[in-house]
């Protein structure tokens, strides 16, 4: 079965180890990469995979898991759904990050603004990124902007643009390729 073919650099696992746990150790990095596209930061993806580890470790050792990898990816996608439901662990789209750095609470100017020279570098980099987005073909740029920058789901972006969701996905895929090629240093 295809699932049995392990990664080329497969880690040695001791005999007798819970197959699910063994599969987790082999797949851990891939799981992080899997989640990171949606949760928008490596740190959050790593946190979620850590949660997954705790869940796996808490399960009774099951010799009978037929497709451990499939189970792991299913658990990972469920954890991601929970993550987006949970307001406490709000992602950037929910604004926690912006809330922390931008909004001032009562009192004086407590915004953690970067120092002037840092701000300049930040601004230049933001301008460079913006230029790369502007250089994309218009529809592609718009799809990327709505989904990636303004945080709309692909379905919402599709509705805003009057095209299909699949088309939005294709635009974003192409935009990512263009942007990487242009901004690669």
């Amino acid at each position: 079965m295809a699932l049995a073919s392990g990664p080329p650099e497969s880690r040695q696992t001791e005999p007798g180890v819970d197959p699910l746990l063994a599969a987790f150790l082999e797949t851990r990095e891939n799981l992080i990469l899997f989640l990171a596209a949606r949760v928008r930061s490596m740190a959050t993806a790593e946190d979620l995979v850590q949660d997954l580890f705790l869940k796996v470790a808490a399960l009774e050792p099951q010799a009978e898991v037929r497709a451990p990898k499939a189970l792991l990816y299913r658990m990972a996608s469920n954890l991601m759904v929970d993550h987006f439901r949970s307001v406490q662990r709000a992602s950037r789209r929910d604004g926690q990050w912006r809330m922390d750095t931008r909004v001032t609470l009562a009192g004086l100017d407590v915004v953690s603004e970067p120092a002037a020279d840092e701000a300049l570098v930040e601004k230049q980099r933001a301008r460079l990124l913006a230029e790369a987005v502007t250089a994309l073909p218009p529809q592609m740029g718009r799809a990327f902007r709505l989904h990636k920058l303004e945080g709309l789901s692909q379905a919402e972006a599709a509705e805003a643009m009057g095209i299909s969701r699949k088309m939005v996905e294709a635009h974003i895929a192409a935009a990512v390729k263009h942007l990487v090629q242009r901004l690669r240093t």
Partner: peptide, 18 residues
């Protein structure tokens, strides 16, 4: 790029992961 676009949206499933 195709994978990023696909995995970045809502409704990603365990099968997508495999």
């Amino acid at each position: 790029g195709v994978w990023i676009a696909r995995l970045a949206d809502e409704g990603v499933s365990g099968d997508d992961g495999l």
